[in-house]
Design a protein around this nucleic acid. Sequence first.
DNA 1: TAGATTGTTAATCGATTAACAATC
DNA 2: TAGATTGTTAATCGATTAACAATC
Lengths: 218, 218
Amino acid sequence: MERKEISNAVIKRLPRYHRYLGELMESGVERISSNDLSEKMNVTASQIRQDLNNFGGFGQQGYGYNVEYLYNEIAKILGIDRQNNMIIIGGGNFGQALTNYSNFERRGFMIQALFDVSPDRIGKSVRGIKTLDMKNLEEFLSGHHIDIAVLTVPKSTAQEVADRLIACGIKAIWNFAHLDLKVPDDVVVENVHLSESLMQLSYRISEKRDKEGSGQNS
Amino acid sequence: MERKEISNAVIKRLPRYHRYLGELMESGVERISSNDLSEKMNVTASQIRQDLNNFGGFGQQGYGYNVEYLYNEIAKILGIDRQNNMIIIGGGNFGQALTNYSNFERRGFMIQALFDVSPDRIGKSVRGIKTLDMKNLEEFLSGHHIDIAVLTVPKSTAQEVADRLIACGIKAIWNFAHLDLKVPDDVVVENVHLSESLMQLSYRISEKRDKEGSGQNS
DNA sequence: TAGATTGTTAATCGATTAACAATC
DNA sequence: TAGATTGTTAATCGATTAACAATC
């Protein structure tokens, strides 16, 4: 199966298509046209058709798209039609919150272990998932197939931990630490920078405040 | 102060500039050229200059940018030069994790209260922040100035809660629930859709797997 | 068949990069 | 002054939208 280079903009939209299709399925909708979907999602029908046709022709002229079929195809494209094993590094607030958040499992993202350095946390279980000593990271990884490492450690140790993970063959990192990790080309990193998200919101608030202050001229 | 319409792409980059400038300050760097900064950040110097010039001329020909000055100016642009009061709705895993995460406070984002419906949680304090009964939301908001409401409730109640917040005059929502909130034009929403982020990572893993499978031709 | 709607090409729009005159 | 580097205009690139022929 050959893939042409897909733009980041398209990839970002795929999970949202998947979500809307899932909701349509739940409401018992069997087929949908790009036009109807575009109205629900507030995007153009053209964009939906362009996006999907990056991956193949999933629709049928005169009919539209079969909701369940398209839902499953997008799941395959996203790679969520299979199990993804994860470990979480950092048993602090976010590490524990992510471990407790069972929704990931419904999508096949299975948390296999939690790692921490603190003796207070090591040995304890969160939702049946053991907290292991960070010292045993390499040992654990040599015996388990892990697809994704989730990084919820402080900024100060994140790069060091990432290096250890990569040395063990980890190829995908979900990074919650507020820095840009340096990784080799064959390792993928997806960042969740909460404070940057919050600052963007703050910008929008300021923007609005300024507009209102200067007699809204629109 | 007039603002022309700033593209979303630019806004997303501002917090990252702010972060790098902060790090430069910490390492005692006083001035930096767009070219040097571009190398550090892995963007083009042209883009940095274009981005900044949306907001004004912060540099000086032949000199570059004063790091501390630019850092402070970007903070002003982002609206993080002032205090932003927040409440968190939903005292579950993420609500508690966000409450415990004291880093937001260092940027002026002050959590004033946590709200929940569960009797187990109501009345308890997290890091000195009280968990209040969701029933008293309206009462609380009538007596406190809150800039941002953080939504960490389940998808099923998120829209309903958002409606209540908006009815009380809340104009900014940081939404962790996995749905697209319907809000009036004057309310800003910033979404953190963790499962979508994870799916994007999963896509990148699949993409790589496919490439390797078909004899990497690059 | 006629109507609907896709898949796909062409046109437009916007964002990024390059170039360079202005100026510190 | 000469050198460096910005601010800004022009060129390029890429993404979105529009249009329509193909086809179910």
